[in-house]
C-alpha cells in the first residue's frame, strides 16, 4: 500500500472558549431563587400556568378590598378595621393551602420527573443551595400572597383616616406573623412535594395534610373547649395543625388576636408553641437536605 496524504482538513468554524467571569455558587443559587419565585406566579411559563396563581392572588385580595371599602364607609362610627390584619391569614387559609398545594409540587416535582436535579448538582451548586433557593422562593411567594391584601387593607385604613400610628404598628406585627406563616407553609409543602415525582400525588398529599389537620383540630378544639370545658387541653391541640400552630405563635409572640378556637394555654403553652414552630421549620429544612443527598426518590 502506498502512503496517502490525509485529504480532509479540520475547518476552524469559530468556536471560542468562554472567557467571561465565572460567577460561582452564590449567583447560581440566586438565579435559581429568582427563577423559582417567578415560576410560583407562572411568570416565564405558559399562559395556562399563570391562570391559577393570579386567580388565587385576586381571590386573596378581594376580601381585603371589601374590608377597606367598609372601613371607609363606617369610619365615622368606628376607628377599627372590620377584621384585624393578623386574623386575615387564618380566615383565608384555604386559599393559601391551595397555593402551596399547587405550587410546591410544581416547583420540585418537574425537576425530579424530568431528571434535571442531577444537572443542577453537576454545577458548582451544593445540595443545600438548591434546598435554600427553593425554600426561600416559595416562602417569598407566599409572603407576597399574604402581604398584598394586608397592604390593601392598610391603604384603605389610612384613606379612612383611622389612627395612622396604631395601624402601622398593627400592620408590621401582622407582616412578621405572615413571615412565620409563609415559612411554615413552604417548609411542610416542599417536604411533602420532594417525596414524589408525580405532581398529582404531591398536590393531594399536601392538601390532605393541611386541610384535614385544620378541620380535625378545629372541630376537636371546639368540642373540648365548649362541651368538656377544658380550654387548656383545647389550646394544646392547636399544636397538631400547621395553621393553628403558626396562629398560636403570632398570638403569643406578637400579641395578635387569635383566630383559633383556643389560644395557646398560658405562658408555658406560648413558649411551647414558639419552640414547636421553630422545630417544625428546622425539621423541614433538615429533612429536605437529607432528601436531596440522594437524587432519585
Amino acid at each position: 500500500m502506498t502512503e496517502q496524504t490525509p485529504s480532509g482538513v479540520i475547518h476552524d468554524i469559530g468556536y471560542r472558549k468562554y472567557d467571561g467571569a465565572r460567577l460561582g455558587r452564590a449567583r447560581v443559587a440566586r438565579a435559581l431563587y429568582a427563577h423559582s419565585l417567578r415560576g410560583a406566579y407562572g411568570l416565564g411559563r405558559s399562559a395556562k400556568a399563570k391562570v391559577l396563581p393570579m386567580l388565587l392572588l385576586g381571590v386573596m385580595c378581594l376580601p381585603a378590598f371589601i374590608i377597606a371599602v367598609i372601613a371607609n364607609v363606617t369610619s365615622t362610627i368606628t376607628a377599627e378595621l372590620p377584621l384585624p390584619y393578623s386574623r386575615y391569614v387564618v380566615v383565608t387559609q384555604g386559599i393559601l393551602t391551595i397555593f402551596v398545594a399547587a405550587q410546591a409540587p410544581a416547583s420540585l416535582s418537574r425537576d425530579l420527573r424530568f431528571k434535571t436535579v442531577p444537572l443542577y448538582f453537576s454545577r458548582p451548586m451544593e445540595r443545600t443551595d438548591y434546598v435554600l433557593a427553593k425554600f426561600a422562593a416559595l416562602s417569598t411567594a407566599l409572603l407576597m400572597l399574604i402581604a398584598a391584601p394586608l397592604l390593601i387593607m392598610y391603604v384603605g385604613a389610612l384613606l379612612a383616616e383611622l389612627p395612622a400610628w396604631e395601624q402601622t404598628s398593627d400592620l408590621l406585627l401582622a407582616l412578621l406573623g405572615a413571615v412565620v406563616f409563609s415559612v411554615v407553609f413552604a417548609g411542610v409543602g416542599l417536604l411533602i412535594a420532594s417525596l414524589t415525582a408525580r405532581r398529582g400525588f404531591g398536590v393531594a398529599a399536601i392538601i390532605t395534610v393541611f386541610a384535614l389537620s385544620f378541620a380535625a383540630v378545629s372541630a376537636l378544639q371546639g368540642i373540648i373547649r365548649y362541651e368538656v370545658e377544658d380550654i387548656d387541653l383545647a389550646g394544646w391541640l392547636g399544636l397538631l395543625s400547621p395553621i393553628t400552630l403558626a396562629d398560636g405563635f403570632q398570638t403569643w409572640v406578637l400579641d395578635a388576636s387569635s383566630s383559633a378556637v383556643a389560644p395557646p394555654p398560658g405562658a408555658a403553652g406560648g413558649v411551647v408553641y414558639v419552640l414547636v414552630t421553630f422545630a417544625v421549620i428546622g425539621a423541614c429544612w433538615a429533612l429536605l437536605n437529607l432528601r436531596y443527598r440522594k437524587v432519585s426518590a
Binding site: 384555604g94 386559599i95 393551602t97 391551595i98 398545594a101 399547587a102 398529582g200 398536590v203 386541610a211
Partner: peptide, 13 residues
Amino acid sequence: RHAVVYGLAYALI
C-alpha cells in the same frame, strides 16, 4: 389537568 386544585377550591372556598 389541575383538577385537584380546582376541586379543592370548590370544597374549601
